[in-house]
Design a protein around this nucleic acid. Structure first.
Lengths: 153, 153
DNA sequence: CAGTGGTCGTTCAAATCTGAACAACAGCTG
DNA sequence: CAGCTGTTGTTCAGATTTGAACGACCACTG
C-alpha cells in the first residue's frame, strides 16, 4: 500500500457536499413520488426508461443497468408495477431465458400525470440553481466517474 | 398548477448523470466498506463525524442530521456499532432525554485503518477526475441545493 | 405548581435492498 | 449432438430503511 493521500480542504468539501446533497435530494424525491403516485423512485425511473425505449419494452438486465439497481431489486419493483397494471412481462422471442418489461397504457398515463411535479422538484432544488456552464461541467464530470465505475464494475 | 416545464437536453443530461453516478458510487463504496471492515456506509460516516466532534461525541439528533439518515435508521446503525465496541452511548448530562454517541478508541483505530482505502475510492472515481475549478463549482452548486432542501424540509 | 406544546430517542411492522443459490437457457467447441 | 462455460431472471434469507406510534422529558405559560 502506498502512502495514504488524504483529501485537502477543497476536495473534502466537494465530496461531502456531493454526498450530503445526493442523499437529501433522494429523500425528497422518494417522499414526493410516494405521496403523489404511490411509486418508489426506482419504479418511477423504470417507467421513464420504458417510455423512451422502442416498443416501450426493455430486457430486465438492460433495465437494471439503466436504473442502477440490482437484479433482485428490479424483479421486486417490476413485480409491484405489474400488480398495479403499469407494466407487463413478456417472454423474449429471441431468447427464452429473457423477460421483456413493457409499459402499459395505464403506465404511460400515470407517468405523464406524475412527471411534471417530479421534474419541478428536480428543477427547484438542482437544475435551476446551476448555470448553463455548471450544468455542462457537472455532466462531463459525472460521466467521467460513471464511465470509470462501469468499466471496473 | 402552471404549465409543465420539461427539462431540455442539457438539463436532462446533467440530472441523469448526477443521479446515475451517485447511485453507482454509493454501491461501490458500500461494497468496499462491507468487505474491508464490515461497515455500512452510514456507519462509516457516523464514525467520521464522531472522530471530528469535540470530545468525540455527538447527540443522536445532530448525528442523524449530519449523516442524512432517519432517526430510526440511526438508532439501528449505532446499535450495531455499539455491539461491535466501536461506539458507546452516554446519557446526555444537560438533557435527560438525550443520548450521546461517543467514539471508542477501538472505533478510532478502525477508522484510521479503513479511511485510506475508502478515500482512495473517492479519489479514483470522483475527486481526481475533477479539476480544481470543477471541484469548487460542484461544491457551491451542491451547497445551494443542500441549503434549499434543508430550509424546506 | 399544573398544564401545554414540542423535542428526543426508541420500538415496531411493513417495505425494500443485497448477495448467494438456483434452474433454465444460449453459445460455442469438439 | 454431447459437453462446457456464461448469462438470465427468480427466489430466498437476512440486513436495512421508513414512518408512525410511543413514553419520557424539556421549556414555557398562567
Amino acid at each position: 500500500m502506498t502512502q495514504p493521500r488524504w483529501l485537502d480542504q477543497t476536495e473534502m468539501a466537494a465530496w461531502r457536499a456531493f454526498l450530503t446533497t445526493s442523499h437529501l435530494l433522494e429523500r425528497r424525491i422518494e417522499e414526493h413520488l410516494k405521496a403523489a403516485a404511490g411509486l418508489t423512485h426506482p419504479q418511477y425511473e423504470i417507467l421513464v426508461r420504458l417510455a423512451e425505449a422502442p416498443g416501450r419494452r426493455l430486457r430486465m438486465t438492460e433495465l437494471a443497468r439503466d436504473v442502477v439497481v440490482s437484479k433482485s431489486a428490479l424483479t421486486y419493483q417490476v413485480g409491484g408495477l405489474e400488480k398495479a397494471g403499469l407494466v407487463e412481462r413478456l417472454t423474449c422471442p429471441s431468447d427464452d431465458r429473457g423477460v421483456l418489461a413493457r409499459l402499459t397504457s395505464a403506465g404511460a398515463d400515470l407517468l405523464e400525470r406524475v412527471a411534471p411535479a417530479h421534474l419541478e422538484i428536480v428543477r427547484d432544488y438542482l437544475v435551476d440553481r446551476l448555470s448553463r456552464a455548471e450544468l455542462l461541467a457537472m455532466t462531463t464530470a459525472m460521466r467521467r466517474t460513471e464511465e470509470a465505475l462501469r468499466a471496473s464494475g
